[in-house]
Structures are given as structure tokens and as C-alpha cells.
Design a protein around this nucleic acid. Structure first.
Lengths: 212, 212
DNA sequence: TTGTCTAATGTCAGCGACTGACATAATCTC
DNA sequence: GAGATTATGTCAGTCGCTGACATTAGACAA
């Protein structure tokens, strides 16, 4: 009815969409060049040819510029989760979808769009921002997991798996950052997968003083 | 050598410690009365009888007032983790320590100190602040878990368990908030335990379309 | 006690994120 | 093309937070 296709809408809508994209692109580029904290919202706005006030009419906060970029990447991850074989256990499916979707990210790395994940991972400042918004991302992922598994909407397991998944990724970020980063995103993926593979044992196992 | 005992230190140090406490108390009280966002740092400072600038010499940010309060509670949790029987699997030990330490919190609820957890749980605004700082809290908890288990410092499992633990608590917060809160913290503990108990199956199990 | 030395505080000016209010300019509708 | 909508710019202001500098209060020795 309303926005079935992004075509044939008025000039107004098209301009708005364009400006939103321009603002994101400007923001990401500046963040990349001078760092997140060192970039002011006024600069982003100026870079996109609008006033700061207009910037804040498009984004509720500076962080949201990054988030909008992440959302695309997250959407990609979700689609890969849906494509995983139905008999794969949920957490395992997430782990493998992560691996698969990384390839695509690497391949499309050169475009400004889609490079958000790598972009963030290069900037420690943004890692915190990233963490802060896991809640929002979690709920979406949880919905996908629930659909895939075909469980009751009241079931808390999908949300839990999503929460654990992102918590693990954050941990992986940390491990990767602590180990000098290496500037290569291959290492980051390896960290992610290592951590994800470690979770079942860490949570369910009886390791420690007396156990194995 | 320097601060072995908190006694017999100069007047200067004592005053500093007192002011820190006063600032935390003032902050928590104001947050409770008018809400976190609606309370300005100037008000907190004025309430403690100092200037805003002094406030910021004691706390790097407004959030940190809450954090300092949480830290005491977290320290309590850590001590309960240490007291758990050594043969208890790590994640299980966390779960039970959580249950135990809640009792103490409830009992000491009437004091302003120590009520931070319940205090936060009553204010949805602060839940986000709480989440934001899980990273800091995680690392401390991870250290305790590692010591308890006696594993190699390079082992990533303690950090993972801690990360999963806090992620689960955040999820519990969400569930509790979505279900109308109920204003009673008993419900919150129940949410926490339910979520924690669900984790092993959610992560390790093969639930969904084809699985159980 | 006095005087110095140091650390804590207050004052002030300023930056940057963010917002409300109002005027202006662009698009949409008829 | 006139009038209703909607986006944008401008301006002023709040709040979190910081640097700089002067002032005060506690520490310490003579």
C-alpha cells in the first residue's frame, strides 16, 4: 500500500532517502579519517551540505549513524541464519551463519556500505558503541531464530541464544583487541569462531579445580 | 606501606572519602526521587555542598556515580562465588551465588548503600546504564571465576562464562521489565534464575523445527 | 606559632551533543 | 498558481564535561 516499492515515490521521499545515505557515508568516512570522538556532528552535517539541526532530525544521536550502517550488516547475518539447514542446532547455526556472512563482508569490503563491521573493529572507540546496542540487535536476531526454530513467541530461548551470541562476539572483539588487533579482519573472524566454539563447554562443562 | 588501614590517615584523606560517599548518597537519592536523566550533575554537587567542577573531579561521569554503587554489590556477588563448593561447575556456581547474594541484598535493602541493585532495577532508565558497564564488571567476575577454577590466565572460558552470565541477567531484566515489573524485586530474582537455568539448554540443545 | 608547600576547591570560560521554537523555503495537492 | 504540508535553517538554550587559573585548606618543618 504505502512503501511496497522504493520507486515511484515523490521527490520529497527520494531526497530524504538520499540525504540519509549521504549523511551515513559522510559520517563513516569522517569517523574513519579522524576517529569517532574527534568527529563532530557539525562536521558530518557540513560534509553532507546541511545544518547540524537537520542532522539531528535524521539521527537521534551521533551513535545512530554507526548503528544504521551496522543494521545492514546485521540484516545480512539474519538472512544467512535463515538459510542454514533446519536440523542444525540454533547456536551452531548462528556460528556458521557468522562464518558464511563474513565472507560476503570481506568481498564487499571495498564499498563504503557494508564495511561497517570491519570499520568498527578498527576503532576501539566504536567497540563500546557497538556493545551498547547489542540489545537492539539481539531482539531482531532473536526473532529470526524463533521463526527458524518454529517455537512459541513466549519461549525465551531464542532471545537467550541471541544474547549469548552477541556477548560472545563482544568477548571476541576484546580478545582480538587485546592481542594487538593485527589490522587484519581475518584474525577477528578467527577470534569470533574460537570464542563461539568455546561457549558450550564453558557454560555447560564442569571445568576447573576438580572437574576436567 | 601506604594505605594498609583506612584509619590513622590525615584529615585530608578522610574528608575526601567522606565527600565521595556523600556524593554517591546524594546522587542515588536524587536519581530515586526525580529519575536519572532528570537529575543534573549540578544538583548532585549542590546537594553535597560542593561545586559541579568538584563533582567531576570525583567522578569521571554521571554514570560513574551509579557504577561506584554497583561495584559494592558486585563485590558481594564475587565473594559469594568464591564461597561456592569447589566441585560445582562454574556457570552453576554463578547461578547459585546470584541466588544467595540476593538474599543479603534484600536484607540490607533499607540502607542506602547496597540498595543499588534494587534501586536500579526500579528505574528503567538506569538499566541501560547498567548494561553499558557490563564489560567492566565482567572482567572482575572473570578473574574470580578463573581463580576459583584454578585455570590458566590465558584460558578464555572464565571471561566467556562471565559474559554469558551478564548477558543473561540483562535478558532477565528485559523480561522482567516487559512483564510489567511488578515493583517487587522478588520477581526480578525469579526472572534471573529462570533465564540462567534456561541457558545450557538454549545454547547446547538442539531445539527447534526438527530437534526436541 | 609561623611560614611554606602541596593538594583540594571554586570560578569561569568554553566545547560538543542535543532540543525547542520560529521563520523560511521547498514540495505536494488541488 | 494558491494554499496546505513538510523539510530545512537559524537561534538560543540546556546539560555533560574539561582546561586554566586563582583561592583556600590541610600537611609539614622550623
Amino acid at each position: 500500500m504505502s512503501t511496497t516499492s522504493p520507486e515511484n515515490v515523490g521527490l520529497r521521499e527520494r531526497k530524504k532517502a538520499e540525504l540519509r545515505t549521504t549523511l551515513i557515508d559522510s559520517g563513516l568516512r569522517l569517523f574513519h579519517e579522524k576517529g569517532y570522538e574527534a568527529t563532530t556532528t557539525e562536521e558530518i552535517a557540513a560534509c553532507a551540505g546541511v545544518s547540524q539541526r537537520t542532522f539531528f532530525r535524521y539521527f537521534a544521536s551521533k551513535e545512530n549513524v554507526v548503528l544504521e550502517a551496522i543494521e545492514e550488516v546485521d540484516e545480512l547475518l539474519c538472512s544467512f541464519v535463515r538459510e542454514r539447514p533446519a536440523d542444525e542446532p540454533p547456536f551452531r547455526a548462528l556460528r556458521n551463519a557468522m562464518r558464511d556472512h563474513w565472507e560476503v563482508l570481506e568481498r564487499e569490503e571495498l564499498h563504503l556500505q557494508g564495511s561497517a563491521a570491519n570499520f568498527i573493529s578498527r576503532s576501539p572507540e566504536l567497540i563500546e558503541v557497538n556493545m551498547r546496542y547489542c540489545a537492539r540487535r539481539q531482539s531482531r536476531l532473536a526473532r529470526v531464530i524463533a521463526e527458524r526454530a518454529g517455537v512459541d513467541p513466549a519461549d525465551h530461548r531464542p532471545a537467550l541464544v541471541a544474547a549469548v551470541f552477541y556477548a560472545t562476539l563482544n568477548n571476541g572483539f576484546q580478545v582480538w583487541a587485546d592481542s594487538g588487533c593485527g589490522d587484519n579482519t581475518d584474525g577477528l573472524l578467527r577470534c569470533f569462531l574460537e570464542q563461539l566454539d568455546l561457549v558450550p563447554e564453558a557454560v555447560c562443562g564442569n571445568w576447573g579445580r576438580d572437574g576436567g
